[in-house]
Simulated scan of single mutants.
Amino acid sequence: MTANFFHRLGAIIILCWLAVGLAACSNFVKGGDNRHNQPLSGGVVQGLRSMGSSPSEGMVIRIFKEESVLEVWKKTATGTYKHFKSYEICAYSGDLGPKFKEGDRQSPEGFYTITPGLMNPRSSYYLSFNTGFPNKFDRVHGRTGSDLMVHGDCSSRGCYAMTDEGIAEIYALARETFKGGNTSFQLQIFPFRMNTANMARHATSPHMDFWKDIKEGHDYFELTKTPPVWDVCEKQYIFNPASSGALDAAGPCPPSVQNPALSAKLQADEADFANKAAAAQTAAERKAAEELAIKERGAAVSGFFSGFGTMFGGNPGQSPNVAPVISGKPATLPTPVAQRP
Rank of each mutant, 00 (worst) to 15 (best):
D231L: 02
A280C: 12
S244M: 04
N275S: 15
P228Q: 05
L262D: 01
C233H: 06
P254I: 03
A249D: 13
L266T: 05
D269P: 05
N275Q: 14
L247R: 04
A279H: 10
D248E: 13
A277C: 06
A279G: 11
L247N: 06
V257D: 01
S243C: 02
A264H: 07
P255H: 03
E270W: 04
L247A: 05
A261W: 09
P252R: 08
I238T: 09
E234V: 01
V232Q: 10
V229A: 11
F239A: 02
A278I: 03
S256V: 14
P255T: 08
N259H: 11
K276V: 11
W230A: 05
D272M: 09
A249S: 15
A280D: 15
A274H: 13
D248S: 13
V232K: 03
E234P: 00
A268T: 10
A261R: 14
L266V: 06
E270H: 11
D269E: 15
T226F: 01
A279T: 14
P255K: 11
K225S: 10
A246D: 15
A242L: 12
P260R: 10
S263G: 13
N240Y: 04
D272S: 10
L262F: 04
A264Q: 13
Q267Y: 09
Q236F: 05
A250M: 10
I238E: 00
T226E: 08
C253F: 04
S263C: 08
S256E: 15
P227M: 08
C233E: 07
V232E: 08
D269H: 08
F239V: 02
L266N: 02
K265A: 09
F239G: 01
A278V: 02
P252V: 10
G245N: 07
A274S: 10
T226H: 04
D248R: 00
A264W: 01
P254A: 03
A268H: 12
A278M: 11
K225N: 06
V232R: 03
P241D: 09
P241K: 09
Q267A: 15
I238F: 02
D231R: 13
S256M: 08
P254Q: 07
A280R: 14
I238L: 02
A249N: 15
A277T: 09
I238C: 01
F239M: 02
D269Y: 00
C253K: 04
P227R: 03
Q267M: 13
I238G: 00
N275A: 14
E270V: 07
A242Q: 12
P254L: 05
D231F: 03
T226I: 06
Q258I: 12
D269T: 04
A246K: 13
P228D: 05
A271H: 12
G251S: 12
P228T: 05
P228F: 01
I238K: 01
I238H: 00
Q236V: 12
K276Y: 07
A242H: 09
W230H: 14
D248G: 05
A279W: 09
D231E: 14
C253G: 04
D231A: 12
C233N: 12
K225L: 09
Q267C: 01
N275K: 12
A277W: 10
V229W: 07
K265I: 00
P227H: 06
L247W: 03
S256A: 15
K225P: 00
A264G: 02
I238N: 00
E270N: 10
P255M: 00
P260L: 08
S256K: 13
Y237I: 03
A268Q: 15
Q267L: 13
A274Y: 00
P254D: 04
